[in-house]
Structure formats: C-alpha cells, structure tokens
C-alpha cells in the first residue's frame, strides 16, 4: 500500500514537473523589455567607463610626477659623485706627502659614491616598480578600450590576471579531488560554482543587509528589536506558547499574517513578523522558524 502510494506520488510529481516545465518554457521575456534593458546596460557601461577615464587621468598626472622623481635620484647621485671626485682631486693637488692618505681617499670616495649609487638604485627600483604597476593598469584599460567592457581574454594584462588566479583555482580543485576519483570532477565544478556564488553573494547580501541594519531579515521573516510589546492592528488576544524553552506571545493580524514576540530579561523585546498568512503557514511552523531566527540573531 505504501509502495503504491509512493509510486502514485512520484507519478504525480513527474506529471507536475513535466507540465510546469512545458508551461514555463512558453514564457519569454518581452522583446521591448529586452530592448530597454540593453539600453540601460549600455548607459551603465558608459557611466562606468567615464568613471574609469577620470580615474586614469588622475593616475596619468601621478605617473608624470613619478617619472620626474625617477630621474631625480640618478641625477642626485651623479652630482654627489662629481662633488666627491672634485673633492678628491682638490685634496690630491693640495698635498702629495701622505701616500697612505692618497691610497685611502679614492677608495673611501669610491665607496661613498658606490653607497650613494646603491641608494639611488634602490629608490629608482621602487619607483620603477610603481610605474610598471600603473603601466600594467593602463594596458588593462587599453584592453577594455575605456568602455569598461572586457574586449577579450587573450590580451596580456587579463591573461596575467587569469594566471594569478590559476594557483588558487588549482588549490581549490586539489582539495575537491581529495575524495573519490569518480566524484572529483562533479565536486570541483560544484565547488567552483559555489565559490563563485559565495563571492558574489557577499556583495549582493551586503546591499540587502544595509537596508535592514537594525533587524534580521531572511526574505519572508523579520526579527526586530523593540523596547516594548508590539501592537498589531486588528489582532486577537496574544497567546502564550513555549517553543524549545522560549516563551513567545503569538497572534494573527487582521491581514492574516503571524506575529510573535518574546521578552528578554533586560526588558528588550524581540518581535518576529512574517508576510506569510495563517493559511500558508501553521502557527507551529511559524514559531519554529521564529525560534531559529531568534537563536541566529542572538548568536551573532
């Protein structure tokens, strides 16, 4: 009997799935919407490109300054060397009685000049690397043609960026491949996709978190901290219910949506709202979820 029930269930699921796929497949994005969206996308690309141009102009000014700096140190070193040599020759002309002094002085002068040259070379090296970085960035900007759109991944700068990412990717794949060989490829693909989704969700989730800075929100439930019990328009009496040792007061608003709150010892009240109605969600499931969210919030 149970097997027949399960088989019926599977047949129904298969039927619903097939029908849903067929019906959904007949839905297409309107052509006008696509046109408007492409236009909006091009506007956004131009806006980002103009931001890049301003950024590049600022870098260009910095680059010419650093070029001047690059020349300054060798010139300074050369000047110092000339002065040192001039000093030596003056000393040499002034007195030739002390051979030891003559032997030592050029060496000292040479070493002093060498030290100065070494210092200049060091600083030149630092500046040179700074210039190279900005040159690479310029190369990358050229690759994007200043439009903010990557023209192709075959250019040198993007290739370097891709190459730098490779070791990280390989490490991820190595970790993924530590399991059975048969699952290695699937796991690696899912790991990459998960990593990609996780990376991006950080950005998108950050935007959402900023909108609800003083509350926790998971899309359909909201936990808000208040100083007193909430008032719910048209609600019936609050009913006390204990869930996993936590005392809640729960009610249903005139719109049919659930609301619950629980008081902390310090007087703080945590209110849990949901957009789901009593028809869509039972009171027990609502309170179960409320408890989960509350626990997550308190553990943060």
């Amino acid at each position: 009997m149970m097997d027949k029930h399960n088989a019926d269930q599977q047949i129904t699921d298969r039927y619903v799935m097939d029908r849903y796929q067929k019906e959904t497949g007949q839905i297409h994005a309107p052509a006008d919407l696509i046109r408007r969206t492409k236009k909006a996308v091009r506007t956004e690309e131009q806006r980002l490109a103009s931001k890049d141009v301003v950024h590049e102009a600022a870098e260009g000014a910095g680059r010419s300054r650093s070029k001047a700096n690059r020349m300054a140190f060798p010139l300074t070193a050369a000047a110092a060397l000339c002065i040192a040599l001039l000093g030596i020759s003056v000393i040499g002309i002034g007195g030739r009685t002390n051979k030891t002094a003559l032997e030592e002085t050029p060496e000292m002068a040479d070493s002093a000049a060498a030290d100065m040259m070494a210092e200049a070379a060091e600083e030149e090296g630092v500046d040179a690397s700074a210039v190279d970085v900005t040159a690479d960035r310029a190369g990358e900007d050229e690759a994007t043609n200043g439009t903010g759109v990557l023209l192709g991944k075959t250019d040198a700068a993007p290739q370097d960026a891709e190459a730098r990412k490779e070791p990280l990717k390989k490490n991820g794949n190595t970790e993924a491949a530590s399991g059975a060989a048969a699952d290695a490829e699937d796991t690696a693909a899912r790991t990459d996709e998960t990593a990609a989704v996780s990376t991006d969700t950080a950005d998108t989730d950050e935007v959402l978190e900023n909108d609800y800075a003083d509350s926790a929100y998971d899309g359909y439930f909201q936990v808000v901290t208040m100083d007193g019990a909430p008032s719910v328009a048209g609600a019936s009496e609050w009913e006390p219910v204990t869930v996993h040792g936590v005392d809640f007061q729960v009610t249903c608003g005139e719109d049919g949506t659930w609301c619950a709150y629980t008081e902390e010892g310090s007087g703080k009240v945590y209110v849990i709202n949901t957009e789901l109605t009593s028809e869509e969600l039972s009171r027990e499931d609502f309170l179960e979820r409320a408890y989960e969210l509350l626990t997550e919030k308190l553990c943060q």
Partner: peptide, 14 residues
C-alpha cells in the same frame, strides 16, 4: 529583470 542585468555590468569583469 532590468535591475539584475544593470547590476551585472559592474561585475562582468569578475
């Protein structure tokens, strides 16, 4: 729909 693709522009390089 439009919001999602406009957002994509600033992330397309990634």
């Amino acid at each position: 729909f439009q919001e999602v693709f406009v957002r994509l522009v600033s992330h397309i390089r990634d």
